[in-house]
Amino acid sequence: MYEDIITVSTVTLRPMWGQKEQNLNRILGYMKAAKKKGSDLVVFPEMALTAYDDEAEKPLEEKMQYKLAETVPGPSTNKVAELAKELGLYVVMGMPIKDAQKPGTIYNGLAIFTPEGLAGDYHKMHLPAPEPNWATRGDKPFILDTPWGPIGCAICYDTYCFPELMDYYVAKGCRMYINSTALAHCHGKCLGDDTLRAQCIREGIFIVSSNLGGLDKDNYFWGGSSILGPSAKTWEPHYYAGMPFTAEGADEEAMYTATIDLSLATRFLYKHNPAVNGTDWRPEKYVGMFQDVLADKGFGK
């Protein structure tokens, strides 16, 4: 049986654009602070190690993300892994990742750590503009195994526009979903808050979001990191820590911590329903629907 009670920290970070060593030092500091708060898990934003913004006019080899990307494992993840082991902490950190077999291939990724060290890395599966200027799409989900059960990991656009990934994680037993994100003012006021609250209600799980905050190189990021989960009220979500992306002051750098009870994650769409002799969620039907889409010669054109 999995443990139910977990303490989680999530960080709104304003990384210094292109200053990897300074950002890494701050990440290590927040890890120590999270441990002092009693946290089991700390989550950092998308591209926390280097900052996010792209210089569209530059060729790939001259871009900041290309120059600062590292393989996993690599110098920065080695330092995070060492401290994670020392502190007994689970850590999720956004960074540009260089493919060890294809050094010219860069991913917008997450490095993921346990108290035993590096667990692996996730490559963002869905890339909005301007990320295709430097990043290649990933093609595999990542589930982190923990004493509290499996935890699904995703990045930003994966979460807001492609519910299939969250569906997969919840169906695999995840009671918590990590949304490491870089949500900016240019994305509008509705994409983040409305989507997360709806997903929390629909999936009946906890969502831990960690967002960039303040001015990057060009974009201004909302901040608003949060730990969102099922409420005691029917069909309502609750902010256990943090705040909506668009709340006053959400853009300020801060760490938010909460102790949550994962047994409150209902996951009801994915549990056996004797009334229909199965689950309300019907993957056996969706497979055929998606195959039909792929067979359509007009799809994607």
Score class of each variant (00 low, 15 high):
Ser231Tyr: 02
Val92Gln: 02
Leu89Arg: 04
Lys301Asn: 15
Ala33Arg: 15
Ala48Asp: 08
Glu131Tyr: 06
Phe113Ile: 14
Cys190Val: 10
Val170Ser: 08
Arg175Trp: 02
Gly109Arg: 00
Asn211Val: 10
Ala135Cys: 07
Cys156Ala: 11
Glu236Met: 13
Val208Lys: 04
Asp121Pro: 09
Gln291Cys: 06
Tyr160Asn: 11
Glu3Leu: 08
Pro283Gln: 03
Met16Thr: 12
Tyr107Gln: 05
Pro75His: 02
Phe206Ile: 03
Gly74Thr: 10
Lys102Gly: 11
Gly188Ala: 06
Pro163His: 05
Arg175Glu: 04
Pro103Val: 01
His272Val: 02
Glu70Thr: 09
Leu60Asn: 00
Tyr160Ile: 10
Glu252Thr: 04
Glu248Gly: 11
Asp216Thr: 00
Glu82Gly: 11
Lys301Gly: 06
Pro283Asp: 09
Met243Leu: 06
Ile151Gly: 07
Asp53Asn: 04
Phe113Cys: 10
Leu269His: 07
Gly138His: 02
Ile155Thr: 12
Ala34Ser: 14
Asn219Thr: 11
Thr71Arg: 04
Asn133Asp: 08
Gly192Thr: 06
Met289Thr: 15
Val11Ser: 11
Asp216Cys: 05
Tyr169Thr: 08
Gly120Lys: 01
Tyr160Gly: 08
Glu62Trp: 07
Leu49Gly: 01
Phe142Glu: 10
Gly223Ser: 13
Glu3Phe: 03
Cys161Asp: 09
Gly300Pro: 11
Met166Lys: 05
Gly224Phe: 06
Ile97Thr: 07
Val208Trp: 01
Glu252Gln: 11
Lys233Val: 10
Ser39His: 05
Pro96Thr: 12
Asp53Ala: 01
Cys190Ser: 15
Pro237Trp: 05
Ala100Glu: 14
Arg267Leu: 12
Leu269Ile: 01
Cys161Pro: 05
Asp121Ala: 13
Leu110Asn: 14
Lys172Gln: 15
Met64Gly: 12
Cys161His: 04
Glu57Gly: 13
Lys301Tyr: 04
Trp281Phe: 15
Tyr30Asn: 09
Lys85Asn: 12
Gly214Phe: 14
Leu144Lys: 08
Glu61Trp: 11
Gln65Ile: 09
Ala56Met: 13
Phe142Pro: 05
Asp280Lys: 15
Tyr169Leu: 13
Gln199Leu: 02
Thr114Lys: 08
Glu46Phe: 00
Arg137Gly: 14
His123Ile: 01
Phe268Glu: 14
Glu203Leu: 12
Cys156Gln: 10
Met1Gly: 07
Ala81His: 04
Gly18Gln: 07
Asn179Phe: 00
Ile6Met: 10
Ala241Lys: 06
Asp292Pro: 00
Cys156Glu: 03
His126Pro: 00
Trp148Arg: 04
Lys124Gly: 00
Tyr169Trp: 10
Cys156Val: 09
Lys63Tyr: 02
Leu165Val: 07
Gly29Ser: 09
Met31Leu: 12
Asp194Asn: 15
Leu165Ile: 09
Ile112Met: 02
Ala34Asp: 03
Glu46Lys: 01
His272Glu: 14
Gly152Arg: 14
Ala33Glu: 15
Ala119Pro: 09
Ile260Leu: 13
Asp193Trp: 10
